[in-house]
Amino acid sequence: MIIDMYAAGIAAVFGLLGIGLYGLMTLRNLIKVILSLQIIGKAAVLAVVVAGSISGEIAVAQSMAASVIVADTLVAVIGLALAVQMQRCHGSLDLRTLSMKFHTPPEAENGG
């Protein structure tokens, strides 16, 4: 029974990772991209917890998971701050149009 729990945990890690990577590849809205990053982050936290329970180092794994959650939240905060700024100075959250705007030849910038 306990083996099945590990297998389920590992399957969930791969599932979350797959969802996150798929989202990163297909979505172009910055907020959705950040959501995908968060899903991959959850996969990593789950991987840490599963690994800790397999090797019996559950205390280590729990403290690691708590730290990862903090780091992950920081990343989300900064990403969302960038999203606010992008909406403000670009008027859209679509990453494709941001890259397009930026495809002006370098000569056009720093003109003079």
Partner: peptide
């Protein structure tokens, strides 16, 4: 926008 794009 270019700097934002790089940061993202």
């Amino acid at each position: 926008p270019a700097a934002l794009d790089a940061a993202i």
